[in-house]
């Protein structure tokens, strides 16, 4: 199935599905609404638990407001739901976080993720937030592929990795921004030490 034909539906551009399956309505933070099948939702542990807890009937879905997903925008959510619809019913991998696995990016997923890195970044955040393990797998694999054949300098540029000095400067700046008085006290203490004083107070 192509990306374009994935059955995620924007409410304002598609008819209500004729199948007697349960379709839930979700709303992104920019007020875009989507209908997503119950089976597709199972790919997301977060959403699956949410709809189970809500216990909506078909009437509730139609009559109650769409379920708001407040920290994901419409563009990203559309990709997420397209992915879930395409992979609905597939086994959900267990995230044990330990054994490196070989992951091939399927053609559908490769096309879906043929997007700019800004959107890919948002997609990964969404996959993590919604706990869609396989989407997280393939999207992170795509990011890992960016490192192939790179020299250390190129790798630093691609991943925007700060040097130790930059990390240290950022840490200091964050500390100062958080508590300017602490910095002043520290400087005062250092000054007293230089002057040979034993007691600070």
């Amino acid at each position: 199935m192509s990306v374009e034909n994935a059955p995620v539906v924007d409410v304002d551009e598609a008819a209500i599905p004729v199948e007697k399956k349960m379709y839930y309505r979700f709303e992104s933070n920019d007020k875009k609404e989507f209908r997503v099948s119950e089976l597709a939702i199972q790919q997301s542990e977060t959403l699956n638990r949410l709809v189970e807890a809500m216990g909506y009937t078909s009437e509730d879905v139609e009559n109650k407001p769409a379920i708001a997903i407040e920290n994901i925008d419409g563009k990203t959510l559309k990709l997420v739901f397209q992915w879930c619809e395409h992979h609905k019913g597939e086994a959900i991998p267990v995230d044990d976080g330990s054994v490196p696995k070989i992951v091939e990016i399927p053609e559908f997923d490769a096309k879906l993720m043929d997007i700019d890195n800004g959107l890919l970044f948002k997609l990964i955040w969404a996959a993590d937030y919604l706990n869609i393990v396989q989407l997280l797998n393939v999207s992170c694999k795509k990011v890992a592929n960016m490192a192939q054949g790179k020299t250390p300098a190129q790798l630093r540029r691609v991943y925007l990795l700060p040097s130790d000095e930059e990390d240290e400067a950022a840490k200091r700046a964050a500390q100062e921004a958080q508590d300017p008085r602490a910095r002043e006290v520290e400087e005062e203490f250092e000054e007293r030490k230089r002057q040979g004083g034993n007691s600070f107070f």
């Binding site: 970044f121 990964i124 993590d128 797998n137 991943y159 925007l160 990795l161």
Partner: peptide, 15 residues
Amino acid sequence: STFPLLRLPSRAIKF
């Protein structure tokens, strides 16, 4: 192109 790896959630960085 660039990708801000360290700004990903920690689980995604591990992945």
